[in-house]
Nucleic acid binder design. Structure first.
Lengths: 255, 255
DNA sequence: GTTTATTGAGTCATTGCGACTCAATATTAA
DNA sequence: TTAATATTGAGTCGCAATGACTCAATAAAC
């Protein structure tokens, strides 16, 4: 249904279906194994990785297009999803142009012409719960999670796009209850702390972190426990949705 | 030179010169008479006001296009200029479509068809020194400053664009040395305080404000004076460019 | 009982902030 | 010369938040 993009009809007549010269890329962050991850897509035309993305259908709102693509690649509907930047450098397809002209190129001519034109990319940042995601895998496409530290060289200017997204994330962390979109319904505070540490890029003190995060009043303590490890199980927490959405609207009171 | 937009050639063949379906609008803030102002443009086709804007030439970087437009409308070259959002709602031209069909409409058919298609607007926020600006006025266009409190109803979704820009500005005020782009080379601290008060939307205490703003170390005290008023003249300040650009890069140390 | 990591409950010094006060200073107008 | 006016410098006071710590109780597995 969403795969007009991969039909011959679209390839021969793209401007009939989507807004010309505009593309969307989603930077989708998840969290697992105490590490922040980003979802990447293997290209169909070479052994390279790229950001999930697509185009804006004529009848789509911009955010709807971003949601549609998120749904396509992760199966998820409603998450934190936010525009964070535009990327339209004249030479942003230079690397790809060279690749397409080389003998590594495995795609077809129609894609070639379409993808190498100049696009203005709208960057959308998504925070999703890792375990809820079923990364898309079909005949031509394959999604996988990558640790932030081991993102490979990507197509176009996608490395820049990810870096910009992380900067934005680091920044928003200070006034929005960001971490929670990345975690499952219930989680130990340590996981949340790890997210903050990863995005901030430094260690935090447990006591101080807990004191602060609990002071926002958007967390609820649960009485469940982990099991399996040779130690006392950590308490689980979930967030109070009412307080949480209020904080999303009005910030965490930093100002 | 920059007025391809107003030639017959452009009107009949726009896609030859600019990226299709993409437009730019600049929200240009200035400061004078202790009030924050925004630069608006009178439309050629009706008695309405609109944001200065234009399109991206095929060979333009996005930021170059925004700079070119800023230069066109203000005469200024280098200022604080930053992307802050995209606006591409499907129905964002609805109001204009109605206007064009009404008997108030004074433009021509070619413009009609071109402007009413669906654009994705890239919003750029500019902070400029009021007194350095020579608002563009020619046969068809007329720029004027408006107080933030008395912005009229604008074309398209431009009121929304301005509101979003102010939100962004209010937000950035907390970590970037914003005010200085709005002030002349030398200024009294009270002017800076007024800017903060306007954007924050509340009164600030002089002593506390001065204490904080001076603590950033980006201001230099000058020994000049005002004259004319029946009171002690305020000291003038200017900003230390080195410290200032450093703060623009790394924030004001809030985080 | 030993080992392990979580947890609760602190301390302590420092910093920043908002709300305030008070007197000295410079300038013009009466 | 004096009065009126607004700026300036130099504070105080209490409160809240922060970062860097410590210490002992607790739960679970082996």
């Amino acid at each position: 249904m969403d795969d007009i993009l991969f039909t011959e009809e679209f390839k021969t007549n793209p401007d009939k279906y989507v807004l010309p010269s505009i593309a969307i890329n989603n930077v989708i962050f998840g969290f697992d194994d105490n590490k922040v991850k980003v979802l990447l897509l293997r290209t169909v035309y070479a052994d390279k990785w790229t950001l999930p993305g697509g185009f804006v259908l004529k009848e789509d709102e911009l955010i709807t297009a971003a949601e549609r693509l998120l749904k396509l690649f992760t199966g998820l509907n409603s998450v934190f999803l936010k525009h964070f930047g535009v990327f339209g450098a004249v030479n942003r397809a230079e690397k790809e142009r060279e690749l397409f002209l080389s003998d590594q190129f495995q795609g077809d001519q129609l894609n070639y012409n379409f993808f190498l034109q100049r696009f203005v990319v709208l960057g959308y940042l998504a925070l999703v719960q890792y375990r809820q995601v079923s990364p898309l895998t079909d005949d031509v496409r394959q999604c996988e999670w990558f640790d932030l530290e081991s993102v490979p060289e990507l197509t176009f200017d996608h490395n820049l796009i990810i870096e910009t997204a992380i900067r934005e994330l680091r920044f928003q962390l200070n006034y929005l209850p960001i971490g929670f979109n990345l975690l499952p319904e219930e989680f130990p505070l340590k996981s949340l702390q790890k997210i903050y540490e990863t995005i901030r890029g430094k260690k935090l003190d447990r006591g101080n972190f807990n004191r602060k995060i609990l002071s926002y009043g958007i967390l609820e303590k649960k009485e469940k426990y982990f099991s399996g490890a040779a130690n006392k199980a950590p308490f689980m927490y979930s967030f109070n949705k009412e307080q949480y959405f209020n904080a999303l609207e009005n910030g965490l009171g930093a100002f």
